[in-house]
């Protein structure tokens, strides 16, 4: 058994063709721009979206810890008192949502196999993402193994900050690694993600050395990593490793911003302002990097 927070069908940008992407919970990094804050913790989390709350009061009746109150006709949620029992989530409630649930590898494969014909007709398959899927190593490898037993094409999206031994265990069951490359400068990397990039670079070298195919996935975050030095670093890495078949640039979007508030988490103030103030010339970035490498550079 392992813990996931979403299984998404019909994903068309997490590897080739039509795919089912399984989002595993828990991540060793804390990238300031992360748009999936619900993926950080290994524990289940409660999200409260006040925009969808109709103050019906049914959560008040069902919460044993008096976390929910209706005051002056409005809903007030005391997150500090919450013990994560999730009893407050009542049928048809659109405001409260639980992120995280236990599931077995067999159940995941059974669900994914419902779309087998779509994979077959599109060259698609299953992708593990997160969080960091390798952060639940046994579970992750078990899913990949069973996927291969069922003839599925497999991708894994990894930040690379994992033990190389675990990575080695996955090699036989992964067709394509979607490897994140977030920042070239080691100091900035630590500042932006919370971890040093030495292990990440070592794992990238390792995957390339064993002949597995890699797509380099590079988030493009205005005011953080939209620097010429980093773009040149992306091209250098793409040129350095023969098995990097493509570079995908992932433009920043602000879809995740509201989720921080809904989960009671703090969001980086600089990130918060990007959506309204900063624009990146994506085409220009693509052209700049493409000019320096023969590998295809595309927008993810």
């Amino acid at each position: 058994m392992g813990k996931v927070f979403n299984i998404q069908k019909f994903c068309t940008s997490d590897g080739p063709g039509i795919r089912t992407t399984v989002f595993l919970k828990g991540c060793p990094l804390r990238c300031v721009w992360c748009h999936n804050p619900e993926s950080h913790s290994f524990s289940d989390e409660l999200s409260y979206n006040s925009d969808n709350c109709i103050s019906c009061g049914r959560c008040v009746m069902s919460c044993p810890n008096q976390c929910h109150k209706i005051i002056n006709g409005g809903h007030v949620f005391d997150r500090n008192a919450c013990r994560s029992c999730f009893r407050c989530i009542q049928p048809a409630c659109k405001a409260l949502k639980r992120y995280g649930y236990e599931i077995s590898a067999d159940e995941i494969i059974q669900d994914a196999m419902k779309d087998e014909a779509f994979y077959r007709n599109s060259g698609g398959g299953i992708t593990l993402s997160g969080g960091e899927p390798f952060a639940q190593p046994e579970f992750c490898v078990e899913i990949l193994k069973k996927a291969k037993e069922n003839g599925l094409h497999t991708c894994i999206e990894t930040c690379g900050h994992i033990s190389t031994d675990i990575l080695a265990q996955s090699l036989d069951f992964v067709d394509l690694y979607l490897f994140d490359y977030k920042e070239t400068d080691p100091v900035k990397h630590t500042e932006y993600t919370g971890v040093d990039n030495t292990l990440i670079l070592e794992n990238l070298r390792y995957i390339n050395s064993v002949g597995k195919q890699i797509i380099l996935r590079c988030p493009l975050i205005p005011t953080f990593n939209d620097t010429k030095e980093h773009f040149e670093g992306i091209a250098d890495i793409a040129n350095k490793y023969a098995n990097i078949i493509k570079v995908e640039i992932e433009p920043y979007h602000d879809f995740g911003c509201n989720k921080y508030e809904q989960l009671g988490k703090a969001i980086n103030e600089q990130i918060k302002s990007i959506g309204v103030s900063e624009k990146t010339n994506i085409e220009g970035v693509l052209a700049y990097i493409q000019d320096k490498t023969s590998k295809p550079v595309i927008i993810a």
């Binding site: 069908k9 019909f10 089912t20 779309d115």
Partner: peptide
């Protein structure tokens, strides 16, 4: 549950 589920 996604378009593939819808089609199924």
């Amino acid at each position: 549950n996604g378009i593939t589920s819808l089609i199924n």
